[in-house]
Design a protein around this nucleic acid. Structure first.
Length: 391
RNA sequence: GUGACCGUAGCUCAAUCGGCAGAGCUCUGGAUUGUGGCUCCAGUGGUUGUGGGUUCAAGCCCCAUCGGUCACC
């Protein structure tokens, strides 16, 4: 098995963008990369074979969900996540820290760890930096994350500092617990610091200097304005060691990906593309479209002209529209595949642009064409209200 | 054929003693960022079956008519 390595292949002048290659025991990952989210060992409605066909190189699964159901020991009995879900590429598992805060009922934090009640049956559970390592060892992902604390937005500076400092102490405990996870697994460190520039810088330096082969940026995309997120990344990136891959947790939308790559991020995971797909929002290069809209009722062409995804190669937009309207299961699969393929193609295009030295031009061109639907409609609605007020 | 009950938004139904015709769903648009197939926000939509009458005022009262449901012949 090859050890974990990260090689930078190209950097783009005028930005912090870089293209690289991550080696894992289950294969290589070309960065920048988008990682589809398979919370419960499944990217909802999409099979492992379909993920592979869509160009997925690495996927993400959730420790929190899998420890509650079916349980990490059962997955261990089946030879780990790779064989359990029949995915032989790289896998990254989240620590469960975020879900304890967003899903767990009656959570209680202490220096030891996080106590919470299951969202499934209310049963009490306890996660500690050490127990998370054991659980992730049983799940057997290639890249694993330590237990961290994601501060709420907004939060007081003191709370942000306390959460960051405890995250740092837990990071050290996770490193010390190296015997609990498998030698072929790679533990990433998590940078916190909420929305305090000094804390972000401190956390980036602290976590960046610990012996983690890779780094995840946590605590962002939790409801803050976009500009706050970019500001935090601008604080963090200069403090990070150049030679370690950087994973931006929970991001994001197509436009987020394009911008964050320029701020030095290499890996992304996000539920957004598949979640919004299930509700009809499909990505195209001119922005998000709602496939449920009546205008697709008789659209003979694909969802996006020129898209090479399974859905667009084989089905008309009218058919996809019909499946959603009719509540057919197949819709979830076709819609999800389209958005996953869009994100992966976008990551590939970004990579090619970086290697060609034209990231800036690519970014500006993409953002000029990709107008978020929300902005378009927000403007239209604003106009409508203004007209109504004048009447 | 006789009798009773019911006709209000695309659907299911509210509307006090006769006093500005409303809600849920659908529909249209939006939101969703380390996924609870969840949830939230906004908007369109009406000749109250039809025709008369009473009244300052009718979805509501009266008459006729059309349609539906049920019961009994």
């Amino acid at each position: 098995m090859p050890p974990f390595t990260f090689t930078i292949e190209a950097e783009c002048p005028g930005s912090w963008a870089r293209a690289g290659m991550v080696q894992t025991p289950h294969g290589a990952i070309q960065t920048p990369i988008f990682m589809p989210v398979g919370t419960q060992a499944s990217v909802k409605s999409v099979s492992s074979e379909e993920l592979h066909e869509a160009g997925a190189q690495i996927i993400l699964a959730n420790t929190y969900h899998l420890m509650l159901r079916p349980g990490s020991s059962l997955i261990h009995e089946f030879g780990g996540l790779h064989s359990f879900m029949h995915w032989d590429g790289p896998i990254l598992t989240d620590s469960g820290g975020f879900q304890v805060f967003s899903l767990g009922h009656l959570r209680k934090l202490s220096e030891d760890g996080a106590a919470f009640r299951s969202h499934l049956d209310g049963s009490p559970h306890m996660l500690t930096p050490e127990s998370v390592m054991q659980i992730e060892a049983e799940l057997g992902a290639d890249i694993i994350l330590p237990l961290d604390i994601c501060a709420a937005f907004p939060c007081l500076p003191e709370e942000a500092k306390e959460a960051m400092q405890r995250t740092h102490r837990w990071a050290e405990r996770a490193l010390t617990a190296k015997a609990l996870y498998r030698p072929e697994q790679t533990l990433f460190g998590i940078v916190q610091g909420a929305f305090e520039p000094e804390l972000r810088q401190e956390s980036a330096r602290y976590i960046g200097n610990l012996p983690f082969p890779g780094l995840s940026i946590g605590g962002l995309s939790v409801g803050e304005p976009k500009e706050s997120m970019w500001e935090m990344l601008r604080c963090v990136t200069p403090e990070l060691p150049r030679g370690k891959p950087r994973h931006l947790l929970g991001v994001g939308s197509p436009e987020d990906l394009v911008i964050a790559v320029g701020l030095g991020m290499d890996m992304f995971d996000c539920a957004l593309p598949t979640r919004v797909a299930r509700h009809g929002a499909l990505f195209t290069h001119s922005g998000r479209v709602n496939i449920k809209s009546a205008r697709f009722r008789d659209e003979r062409g694909p969802v996006e002209e020129g898209c090479d995804c399974y859905t667009c190669r084989n089905y008309s937009a009218a058919y996809v529209h019909h499946l959603l309207r009719a509540g057919e299961q197949l819709y979830y699969r076709l819609g999800s595949i389209h958005n996953i393929r869009f994100m992966l193609r976008l990551a590939g295009d970004l990579r090619a642009a970086i290697i060609a030295g034209s990231y800036i031009a690519f970014r500006d061109d993409f953002l000029a064409r990709y107008i978020p639907a929300s902005e378009k409609v927000r403007d239209e609605q604003r106009e409508k209200w203004r007209a109504a007020r004048l009447r």
